[in-house]
Design a protein around this nucleic acid. Structure first.
Lengths: 241, 241
DNA sequence: TTGACAAGTGGAGGAGGCTCCACTTATTCT
DNA sequence: AGAATAAGTGGAGCCTCCTCCACTTGTCAA
């Protein structure tokens, strides 16, 4: 009765969420390469049930009214739980959308991993990079509303949260590794690999992508073609001049 | 008394701000290349006085507590006006920050214009492009807090507002024109100029820039060097392969 | 089985953001 | 000059987000 205060106050609000999986505070769990969204380890049965209800309610409301028009309170009401319970599991709407997205991410991760898996024996690194970026365009198209909502939530004290989130980190690591292979193989002129990995992903960030699609009128095909030409231009043509 | 209802309801909330300059609704004013922030055309004297007070109060509070910790209501109180008046002039905090930023933008615009002005006779287009991007890094450094707040305000129904805002549009036009010159001069392999202009600016977007600076630990010098190498890599080396 | 404790739950309420509209004030036209 | 008109003003209030904390429930060890 008094012991709980220590935890409640000692960790006031500092992103104490571990990216969606709460559970019995294991200090450093393994990275979980392709964890199934259901049956989180050590999660209490009632909590699991509520998580399912939350995601189902959110999915239904989002489909019915659009992601932006649905508030956290509405989701809680539709799921039949109190707002406090909802916020305990998903500290804000962005994390909820991330949870929802993880159910869609499977195919994206599998396809990308398959394309990349064979390692240096699977054709030039730049070609693999191209495949990842083109797949990312398709992913943007499929998940634009959720991705948009996740981006929206990265406001204020959460600015830049996207770049620390699981999806971007995973993409970044993949792109960085492939860029480094390309550099090692002499496919690229000398470049700052860590910066380049961000720079290659930045033009496909959801905000800009949606602006180009809807305000500039670009089609996904045009964007894909532009990315292809762009990567081709980066191919090392001269030693360094 | 009844005539006003028509306007008040007919234009419920649709970005009715024209980027900071309210005033006597002239339909299509000229682009205003380098308009002074004071003495807006046709603005009533009391409105001008309030605008000055708002900007002064905002600047003071931002300096004292940080941009993120100051609410619109606090600014209104400090300026000695009602919240309604504040919101009439700046429909949200992002536009207020834009207004504040315009007071700083002068030197940036002048230096950039000067570097670009001589036209095709002032060295290779790619070198001018590099100068613009490097200057943008310095601009990011100088104005990070305001730029961050502007980015934060581009949430929800205002997603992507940055790309429609005056600063980005100006940058985009400049970069696009220079890219087109570089293409015409054969300095670049064939590329989609309109997409490339966005793609060159995207890695310097304030969100990613601040993440790299603070989470990845990049220095401005490292970022500048990376941009330089990057542009060098784009230089046309081979016809098209 | 049973008891102790950690994790989970719900909802009332504080805290702002933003709006609406009746009133005030500057400008302009005759 | 002075009246008509359109722009500008202020603040009460609505509405939603998010937090806090007393209570409930599941789990595990003895």
């Amino acid at each position: 009765m008094a012991t709980r205060e220590a935890r409640g106050l000692g960790q006031p609000r500092g992103e104490g969420h571990d990216g969606g999986r709460a559970a019995h505070g294991r200090p450093d769990a393994p990275p979980c390469p392709a964890e199934a969204p259901e049956a989180l380890r050590g999660e209490r049965r009632d909590a699991a049930e509520n998580r399912r209800r939350i995601l189902a309610a959110a999915r239904a409301l989002f489909a019915e009214r659009g992601v932006d028009a649905v508030s956290m309170n509405q989701i809680a009401r539709a799921a039949g739980i109190g707002p406090g319970t909802l916020y305990r599991r998903y500290a804000h709407k962005g994390l909820l959308c991330q949870g929802l997205l993880e159910e869609n991410t499977g195919r994206f991760r599998e396809e990308t991993a398959a394309r990349l898996a064979p390692g240096p024996a699977a054709g030039p690194a730049l070609a693999r990079l191209e495949a990842v970026l083109l797949r990312l365009i398709a992913f943007n198209e499929e998940n634009a509303p959720l991705l948009g909502a996740i981006a929206d939530a990265a406001c204020g004290d959460r600015r830049g949260a996207i770049y620390g989130g699981p999806l971007y980190q995973w993409l970044y690591r993949i792109v960085l590794a492939t860029v480094e292979e390309a550099l090692a193989a002499g496919e690229l002129a000398p470049l700052d690999a860590a910066w380049l990995a961000d720079a290659l992903l930045a033009p496909l960030a959801i905000d800009l992508y949606l602006f180009q699609r809807h305000e500039r009128g670009f089609t996904p095909e045009r964007i894909a073609a532009a990315v292809r030409q762009f990567l081709a231009s980066l191919r090392a043509g001269q030693p360094v001049a």
